[in-house]
């Protein structure tokens, strides 16, 4: 890959950050050209550039959050699964791609319907009936071709969930039913990977980061049983806004977790009440 590193240097330009700092950058078109010329992936070119202290311009505003070039490399080498590609998962997948998370596994067996248009950012009047996982892959490829996508156009269930999550560093729980959410937690526990839970109903949303061995969903939904698979959202519906709030918070947790930065919402439940205009953080550890 010495050849790649040399080629990257030849395309390097000087850039000026908003803070007035000079830095070495490489443009998207140069990255695309190099990938074509040297028959390697966009991701490989970007990682090679970052390893030589050259910033792919598209990530310039990420670096304050990632803690520099090393953090961006870490994100590009990360593999995250998004289970459920509706209100939460559709936006979460897009935000992960914009941050430059290098491999995203997309899981949803559903196709878009009209009642999704009010809140699911991947749905449009033109793609009704399209599988959500296909729409997510198309959107991600348009936003960031460095991202590798692995697509499962089926619902996560007992028979496939281990296969879906294998090799993932982290799972985002963007599901819409308790049974699969609990199955996800159980599987993550077996595989030894963390998950980030998000859920919404009307004016309300919640987020929690769950590591293997944590009580997690068992503490949040103490009254769960097979008969109760949904929450108050079945009666109250979901608007455009709360899925976006919660998905954004889930992705921020994912980025922090992958970069080992800050305080995670581990053993804590963040409850967002936009009607009251308040956030509560509740301890889940007993």
């Amino acid at each position: 890959m010495k050849e790649l590193a040399e080629a990257v240097k030849a395309f390097t330009e000087e850039g000026l950050s908003p803070a007035g700092k000079v830095y070495h950058k490489i443009s998207l078109s140069a990255v695309q050209r190099l990938a074509g010329q040297l028959s390697c992936s966009i991701k490989e070119v970007e990682i090679s550039a970052l390893s030589s202290g050259i910033v792919p311009e598209r990530y310039e505003r990420n670096l304050g959050t990632t803690g520099g070039l090393e953090g961006q490399i870490l994100l590009l080498n990360s593999r995250v699964a998004v289970l459920g590609l509706g209100g939460l998962g559709g936006l979460a997948a897009e935000l992960l791609a914009r941050m430059g998370v290098g491999t995203i596994t997309l899981i949803d067996g559903d196709a878009f319907s009209e009642s999704n248009l009010n809140r699911q950012v991947l749905s449009t009047e033109e793609n009704l009936q399209q599988k959500k996982a296909d729409a997510a892959r198309e959107r991600i490829t348009k936003i960031n071709a460095a991202v590798e996508t692995i697509v499962f156009k089926e619902m996560a269930a007992e028979h496939n969930i281990k296969k879906i999550l294998q090799d993932c560093h982290l799972a985002l729980d963007c599901l819409d039913n308790l049974e699969t959410r609990f199955l996800l937690q159980e599987t993550c526990q077996k595989l030894g990977i963390p998950m980030i839970h998000g859920a919404i109903a009307q004016f309300y949303g919640q987020v929690s980061t769950i590591f293997p061995g944590d009580p997690g969903l068992k503490a949040i939904y103490s009254s769960f049983n097979k008969g109760q698979n949904k929450g108050i959202e079945t009666e109250l519906g979901n608007p455009a806004t709360t899925p976006a709030l919660v998905a954004a918070w889930q992705v921020q947790e994912a980025v922090k977790l992958l970069l080992k930065k800050g305080e995670l919402l581990r053993n804590r439940l963040l409850f967002i009440d936009t009607l009251q205009g308040s956030c509560e953080t509740i301890l889940l550890e007993r």
Binding site: L178, A199, I200, A201, Y204, G205, I232, E280, I282
Partner: peptide, 10 residues
């Protein structure tokens, strides 16, 4: 005491 209803939408 803080009391919440369950929410589970996605």
């Amino acid at each position: 005491a803080a009391i919440f209803p369950p929410i589970a939408g996605g």
